[in-house]
Amino acid sequence: MGAIAAMPGLEPQLEPHLKISMNVGLTLQQLQQVANELRTAGQPNGADRILVAFEKIIS
């Protein structure tokens, strides 16, 4: 998921990957940690893409 988020233009793939991750047992906190790790690794845009997709799922 981190790789998809880090690449511009793949935003449509993030939402289904987040849903699948939740279906196999990852928690919201664990998924948010992926965004935090991307931000720490110098990929703030990737982190933002995950958070935007995340908002679509939980809203």
Rank of each mutant, 00 (worst) to 15 (best):
G2K: 15
G2R: 15
A3S: 15
A3E: 15
A3P: 11
A3G: 13
A5R: 07
A6E: 11
A6N: 09
M7Q: 14
M7F: 13
P8D: 04
G9D: 05
L10C: 10
L10H: 07
E11N: 09
P12M: 09
P12H: 07
Q13F: 15
L14H: 10
L14V: 13
L14T: 11
E15T: 13
E15M: 12
H17M: 15
L18I: 04
K19C: 14
K19A: 15
I20R: 14
M22Q: 10
N23A: 14
L28D: 04
L28H: 05
Q29Y: 05
Q30V: 00
L31W: 01
L31Y: 02
Q33F: 02
Q33P: 01
Q33C: 06
V34A: 01
A35H: 01
N36I: 06
L38E: 01
L38G: 01
L38F: 08
L38T: 01
R39N: 11
R39L: 08
T40H: 09
G42K: 06
Q43P: 02
Q43A: 10
P44R: 00
P44S: 02
P44M: 01
P44L: 00
N45W: 13
N45T: 13
G46C: 08
G46W: 10
A47H: 01
D48S: 13
R49H: 10
R49I: 03
R49V: 03
I50G: 05
I50T: 10
I50V: 14
I50H: 02
L51I: 08
L51Q: 09
F54N: 11
F54K: 09
E55M: 09
E55T: 03
E55N: 09
K56P: 03
I57L: 04
I58A: 12
I58W: 06
S59H: 05
S59W: 00
